[in-house]
Write a protein that binds this DNA or RNA. Structure first.
Lengths: 248, 248
DNA sequence: AAAGTATAGTTGTCTATACCTATTTACAGG
DNA sequence: CCTGTAAATAGGTATAGACAACTATACTTT
């Protein structure tokens, strides 16, 4: 196809920013295999002419892809496609549901408990609210392909996340927070440790006493840095491994 | 102080980019407490006038700080200081040494084993080299404040990381790779699981049989996506918790 | 008092250009 | 054949300006 035809792939009048469209275009070419790991990309100036946009706009698109690990730059040499990441889908902050789906399993859960309680000193400190401030407490068994995978206890600031119901909890809490309440979920801190199954875990996860357990405590923050959620999970070690990516 | 004096804080003739100097200046003000969490920053245009640089340069500085979690933006409203992160020092890809220091402990290690061996099928696959390609294999006991903390087995591509010696290993492998070999370490994939101590671990870590163990397998990549290192660590669960940060 | 409206100020996007440094390539000279 | 140099080309930094989208506030109208 002729050079001019490339500009049909982006729409300058779209509400989507041009840099975002270009970002998707490049990501597409990588995922389709038209750009293979190690391949050099067209230079920024070439792209600039190709799409008839300024070089800075191209750079904005490429910057994002470099940050996300799809590309890497070599000054004086060019921009290249990075090797495929081990588990592209599993990186970043995901819910149990997203996590299981990415592993090819069907997630479900059984709600054991749901109420509003006054925050304990420890929970209050982590959520940065006063003691006895109302928080939601809920316990769930998390299953994958109908097999118990984890036991989860969750605390959420009731003053921040208002109007939570059993109905919403059984669907997606995150979607409710982001779409209905218009709060922006940012990052999370996790503490991961190894332990042995206690009575409750032995019973509910249907494993032997003394089996290894992967304990994960997550505190999730909004983009403005306010913590809104604590999740304490006990995963069966025989069925679950935690995968993470680190940047230097 | 008068407005003009601010421009003394940045040096336009410095080899350090202006945006980087401004980045450091803002980070400094946050760390000194002159800018507190929740505070709004001067607008981009104000900074632009203050430092007598273009607004895009200011944006480049602020973008980095937003990415690193120091600041967050609100369209139409302003840029704000984020809440302090839980464990600023511990995020990202760190060595055992860096990790322990950040926790206020004194790291040391005992080399048990160091040799070049042909890559096993599994190691070869992960390091993306042919089977029987030479790789370094080393085993170490990692101690913190003289107490055994973890048992570590490490495989490194010998064709990629040349000239490794016991001497270098006992200091810093990462520094050798980055400074002497001029290779750029990028990111890592980690698999974390919970297990029970086996014979060797029981003995070398001085713990009881059946104690919980945190198993961490890390594969580390260069920025161009080439894997160069596999590290398998067994941490004492009673002394070590793994902390990580996730972005949405 | 409530609702709507203008306005000023903010970040977000985009352009066009310039000059820098690092790398690669081609070529001339030994 | 090797070496050094120059030219071409890559990404890196920086400028100045424009308009869009959004927010908070003050003001006006109902």
């Amino acid at each position: 196809m002729k050079g001019d035809d490339y500009i049909l792939l982006i729409d300058k009048n779209s509400p989507l920013p041009i840099y975002h469209q270009i970002e998707e275009y490049i990501k597409d070419r990588i995922e389709k295999g038209e750009l293979k790991p190690g391949n050099v990309l067209p230079s920024e100036r070439e792209y600039s002419q190709l799409f008839q946009v300024s070089r800075m706009t191209i750079r904005q698109a490429i910057n994002k892809l470099v940050n996300d690990g799809y590309l890497y730059r070599k000054k004086g040499s060019g921009t290249f496609v990075a090797e495929k990441k081990f588990e592209q889908a599993l990186q970043g902050l995901t819910s149990f549901t997203e996590d299981m789906k990415a592993r090819g399993l069907t997630p479900s859960s059984k709600l054991l408990h749901f109420e509003i309680i006054p925050a304990s000193p420890q929970v209050a400190a982590t959520l940065q609210v006063a003691e006895n401030t109302p928080v939601y407490e809920m316990k769930r068994i998390r299953l994958a392909d109908e097999i118990p995978m984890a036991l989860e206890t969750c605390y959420i600031s009731a003053n921040l996340v208002k109007g939570l119901t059993e109905e919403i909890v059984s669907h997606s809490i995150y979607r409710y927070i982001e779409e209905k309440l218009q709060l922006e979920i940012g990052e999370a801190t996790q503490i991961i440790e190894s332990s042995l199954a206690n009575e409750t875990e032995t019973e509910l996860l249907k494993i032997k006493k003394g089996s290894p357990i992967l304990l994960i405590e997550r505190c999730t923050f909004l983009t403005n840095g306010t913590p809104f959620e604590i999740v304490r999970s006990s995963y069966r070690a025989d069925r679950y491994k935690f995968i993470s990516h680190l940047k230097r």
